[in-house]
């Protein structure tokens, strides 16, 4: 898939993934890479940015399998952002699809 497409929707996917339930870094990367094929390394900087912009909160949970895991939790600000991005995505997708349908005729 076009890498510019991916970059644009990555934030939306990460936000909605955390919104469904709290996730830790690796789990999130796994779930996101199922949808879009991205360089896994670049998801961590995105998580960092979303945390710095107060869309996410983090907390540590002890793990039986190794070091404590950092979980990401969406804030109310993050939910607002998600809503906005979702709306934008839906209208964008709709208009693009309509345009494509019309030009096919």
């Amino acid at each position: 898939m076009n890498s510019q497409f991916k970059k644009g929707v990555l934030e939306l996917i990460v936000l909605s993934s955390v919104a469904s339930h709290d996730r830790y870094g690796y789990e999130l990367v796994e779930s996101v890479s199922k949808v879009v094929d991205v360089n896994e390394g670049t998801i961590y900087p995105l998580l960092k940015r979303l945390t710095n912009e107060h869309y996410f909160e983090t907390y540590l949970v002890e793990s039986t399998e190794g070091p404590p895991r950092k979980y990401y939790h969406i804030t109310s600000l993050g939910s607002e952002r998600l809503q906005l991005l979702q709306e934008q995505w839906v209208t964008f997708e709709k208009s693009v699809n309509q345009f494509l349908k019309r030009s096919r005729k």
Partner: peptide, 16 residues
């Protein structure tokens, strides 16, 4: 699979 370190660093610094 992480790709180039410079790219990662650039993305990380952007977060700040």
């Amino acid at each position: 699979e992480f790709g180039s370190i410079d790219e990662l660093v650039r993305e990380t610094l952007k977060a700040y």
